[in-house]
């Protein structure tokens, strides 16, 4: 067994692209595990009959979304220069995963899920929307003190999970939404639930996560 002093914890910031839009959280974990295995890096494994590489994803992304900002932690049994880790991972990446940065982090840090605070999303609509109309819907929604939403037969109050919601318009006059939603372990806002409240079914739009916000340590 490798002495624990040799173990390092590596954090990868990455984007999840279009070809992985319909890959769910558990499947994404397996994709990362296989990517790490292909890289040939000295991974730290769990014990038991079916050892698994030790890894940790910050926040589940709903099916159908892409993201510019996702976080992964994994553990190595022995130290390895960051440049070498980057090169090996780069060579092993599947389509749809793009690495933005890699760094070593403190072994004692909390799990990423625990550090999660909020997520920002950008919504674009397939069909052109009237900005004034959209703004009206947004204002009406935000003016409510409580928004009861039912998801899988369970009702909850969506309002406190909305930290920010704004209509944005690009140079060609097409408008979309920007939102910041709470993403704490016990209280995570879902953009699709919010869009449902605004009257848009999930066949009307694309969602991209633009930023993860971690708690200040």
């Amino acid at each position: 067994m490798t002495p624990d002093t040799q173990v390092t914890r590596i954090r990868v910031q990455y984007a999840k692209g279009d070809s992985l839009r319909f890959t769910g959280h558990l499947d994404l974990q397996r994709i990362w595990e296989r990517t790490l295995r292909r890289s040939g890096l000295p991974l730290r494994y769990t014990q038991g009959y079916h050892p698994r590489a030790r890894l940790n994803l910050a926040s589940a992304l709903p099916l159908g979304f892409t993201s510019d900002d996702e976080l992964l932690d994994f553990w190595l049994d022995s130290p390895c220069p960051i440049e070498q880790i980057a090169a090996r991972l780069q060579a092993a990446l599947p389509p749809g995963l793009i690495i933005q940065s890699i760094q070593e982090v403190d072994l004692g840090e909390d799990a990423l899920q625990v550090q999660m605070k909020a997520s920002e999303y950008q919504v674009t609509f397939f069909d052109r929307q009237d900005p004034a109309q959209l703004r009206l819907r947004v204002d009406q929604l935000l003016s409510q003190v409580e928004i009861q939403h039912t998801r899988r037969k369970k009702s909850y109050n969506l309002r406190p999970l909305i930290l920010d919601l704004a209509v944005v318009t690009n140079s060609s006059g097409e408008c979309g939404l920007l939102m910041r939603l709470l993403a704490e372990p016990s209280a995570t806002g879902r953009p699709d639930d919010l869009l449902d409240q605004l009257g848009y079914p999930n066949t009307d739009y694309l969602v991209r996560r633009t930023r993860l916000l971690l708690a200040e340590l």
Partner: peptide
């Protein structure tokens, strides 16, 4: 793209592996 969100396991129909 517009019908994929309405079906079970849309990842069956997108390739990209």
């Amino acid at each position: 793209e517009r019908i994929l969100p309405t079906v079970v396991k849309p990842g069956r129909y997108v390739g990209g592996e």
